[in-house]
Simulated scan of single mutants.
Amino acid sequence: MLIDLNRYQGDGYVSLKDVAQRENISKKYLEQIVPVLNRSGILCANRGYQGGYRLASPADQISVYDVLKATEGSLACVACLEEHAMPCERREFCPTLPVWKKFDELVKDYFSKITLQDMIQQQGEE
């Protein structure tokens, strides 16, 4: 959806109906994720005549990590690494925590380096 918006927004807003048709995605599904993306600052909305949605920032400034965090919430692979995790009494002695911390860092680092623009360029190369 975000790549479609980047492609068709021009100087205006794009309707969900148009995105749904072009991308073969349920409009109802798009209606569920749009508020989340709008609240997170990834999208801008405009109501009324010629209303719709557009990216709030250029595609090269929106990382895949930003989108995943907005839509999925925490990407932590174990509960103790979540943002507002309850303190774990085993944290100091947990033999697996360093492994999960490193994995968490790798995931964040990897997805933070990929932008929507990167995905658009890769799609164009294929």
Rank of each mutant, 00 (worst) to 15 (best):
G10V: 05
G10F: 09
D11S: 11
G12V: 12
Y13H: 01
Y13K: 01
L16T: 00
L16W: 14
K17D: 10
D18W: 12
D18L: 13
V19F: 09
V19W: 13
A20I: 06
R22D: 09
R22N: 09
E23M: 15
E23C: 15
E23I: 04
N24K: 13
N24R: 12
I25G: 00
I25L: 15
S26D: 14
S26I: 02
S26A: 04
K27C: 01
K27S: 03
K28N: 14
Y29M: 08
V34E: 12
P35D: 09
L37H: 01
L37C: 02
N38C: 05
S40Q: 05
S40L: 13
I42L: 15
L43Y: 08
L43K: 05
A45H: 15
A45F: 11
A45R: 15
N46I: 03
N46P: 00
R47E: 14
G48W: 07
Y49F: 13
Y49A: 11
G51C: 09
G51A: 08
G52M: 10
G52S: 05
G52K: 03
Y53D: 00
L55F: 10
L55H: 10
A56R: 07
A56E: 09
A59C: 04
A59D: 08
A59P: 11
D60N: 15
Q61I: 03
I62W: 09
V64D: 05
Y65H: 09
Y65M: 07
Y65I: 01
V67I: 04
K69P: 04
A70T: 01
A70K: 00
A70D: 03
T71M: 15
E72W: 06
G73V: 00
S74I: 06
L75S: 02
A76H: 07
C77Q: 10
C77F: 06
C77S: 14
V78P: 01
V78F: 06
A79E: 13
A79Y: 10
C80G: 03
L81P: 04
L81E: 06
L81D: 04
E82F: 05
E82M: 10
E83P: 04
H84P: 03
H84C: 06
H84V: 01
H84S: 07
A85R: 07
A85P: 06
M86I: 07
M86Y: 04
M86P: 00
P87L: 13
P87G: 03
C88I: 03
C88Q: 10
R90N: 11
R91E: 15
R91H: 13
E92L: 08
F93T: 13
F93L: 08
C94S: 10
P95S: 14
P95A: 11
P95D: 09
T96A: 15
L97D: 02
L97Y: 08
L97A: 01
L97K: 02
P98E: 11
P98Y: 11
